Deep mutational scan, measured.
Amino acid sequence: QVNIAPGSLDKALNQYAAHSGFTLSVDASLTRGKQSNGLHGDYDVESGLQQLLDGSGLQVKPLGNNSWTLEP
């Protein structure tokens, strides 16, 4: 069960990665100043990332080996 409060997208993504045990490689300029609506409930990694990114204009991309990145 994930419980991440709304706020900074950077912070939300870092909390989610730490909670879910995956690696997220992101260029900080992509997420700077963006906000997230947070995340509450049970999600697989990709669904949770998509939910956190909702409205940010960013997309999640798998890199393999439980690693992910973001792209515009």
Results as ranks from 00 to 15, higher is better:
Asp42Glu: 12
Leu53Ser: 03
Thr23Leu: 11
Ala17Val: 07
Ser56Val: 04
Leu53Pro: 02
Ala17Arg: 07
Gln1Lys: 13
Pro62Cys: 12
Val26Pro: 02
Val60Phe: 11
Ala28Trp: 14
Gly64Thr: 05
Thr69Asp: 04
Tyr43Leu: 05
Asn14His: 14
Gln35Tyr: 15
Asn65Lys: 11
Val60His: 09
Ser8His: 06
Asn65Ile: 09
Leu13Pro: 01
Ser47Asn: 08
Val26His: 11
Ser67Glu: 12
Gly55Tyr: 04
Ile4Val: 06
Asn37Glu: 08
Asp27Ser: 08
Ser25Pro: 02
Lys61Trp: 07
Ala28Met: 10
Trp68Ile: 04
Ala28Arg: 12
Val45Gly: 04
Ser67Gln: 12
Gln1Val: 13
Phe22Cys: 09
Lys61Ile: 13
Phe22Gln: 04
Gly57Asp: 06
Leu58His: 00
Gly7Ser: 07
Val26Arg: 03
Tyr16Ala: 00
Gly64Pro: 06
Gly41Leu: 03
Arg32Met: 12
Asp42Asn: 14
Tyr16Thr: 00
Tyr43Trp: 13
Gly48Trp: 06
Asn66Ala: 05
Leu9Asp: 01
Lys61Val: 13
Arg32Lys: 12
Gln50Met: 13
Leu53Cys: 08
Gly64Tyr: 04
Ser67Ile: 14
Pro62Ile: 09
Ser20Thr: 10
Ser67Ala: 13
Ser36Glu: 01
Asp54Asn: 12
Tyr16Leu: 06
Val45Pro: 07
Val45Arg: 06
Ser36Arg: 02
Lys61Tyr: 08
Val26Tyr: 15
Ser25Cys: 15
Ala17Glu: 01
Pro62Phe: 15
Asp10Ile: 13
Gln59Ala: 11
Thr31Arg: 00
Gly41Gln: 02
Leu49Gly: 01
Ile4Gln: 02
Gln15Tyr: 10
Gln35Ala: 08
Pro62Leu: 11
His19Arg: 09
Gly57Asn: 07
Ala5Lys: 10
Val2Met: 08
Leu30Asp: 04
Thr69Phe: 08
Thr23Arg: 08
Pro72Trp: 09
Gln50Ile: 13
Ala12Phe: 06
Ala28Asp: 10
His40Ile: 14
Ser56Met: 08
Glu46Ile: 14
Asn14Pro: 00
Val2Cys: 11
Gly57Ser: 04
Asp42Tyr: 15
Tyr16Ser: 00
Val60Lys: 04
Ile4Thr: 02
Ser8Asp: 13
Trp68Val: 02
Leu49Val: 01
His19Glu: 12
Gln35Pro: 05
Asp27Lys: 07
Lys61Arg: 13
Asp10Val: 08
Leu30Arg: 00
Asp44Arg: 05
Leu63Val: 08
Asn3Cys: 15
Ser29Cys: 15
Gln35Asn: 11
Ile4Lys: 04
His40Asp: 08
Pro62Ala: 14
Asp54Ser: 14
Ser56Gly: 01
Gln35His: 13
Leu39Ile: 08
Val60Thr: 06
Gln51Ile: 15
Gly38Lys: 02
Pro72Leu: 13
Thr31Tyr: 05
Gly33Ala: 05
Gly21Ser: 06
Thr31Met: 09
Gly21Gln: 07
Thr23Phe: 11
Ser20Arg: 14
Leu49Gln: 02
Ser36Gln: 08
Ala12Gly: 03
Arg32Asp: 10
Asp10Phe: 14
Asn66Met: 08
Leu39Tyr: 03
Glu71Met: 11
Ile4Met: 02
Ser25Arg: 10
Gly38Glu: 03
Asn3His: 14
Asn14Gly: 10
Leu30Phe: 07
Leu39His: 00
His40Ser: 12
Gln15Phe: 09
Leu53Ile: 13
Glu46Ser: 08
Gly33His: 07
Gly64Asp: 06
Tyr43Cys: 07
Thr31Glu: 01
Trp68Thr: 00
Asp10Lys: 07
Asn65Val: 09
Thr23Val: 10
Pro62Tyr: 15
Asn66Asp: 07
Phe22Glu: 01
Asp44Met: 06
Gln51Leu: 14
Asn37Thr: 08
Ala18Gln: 12
Asp27Arg: 07
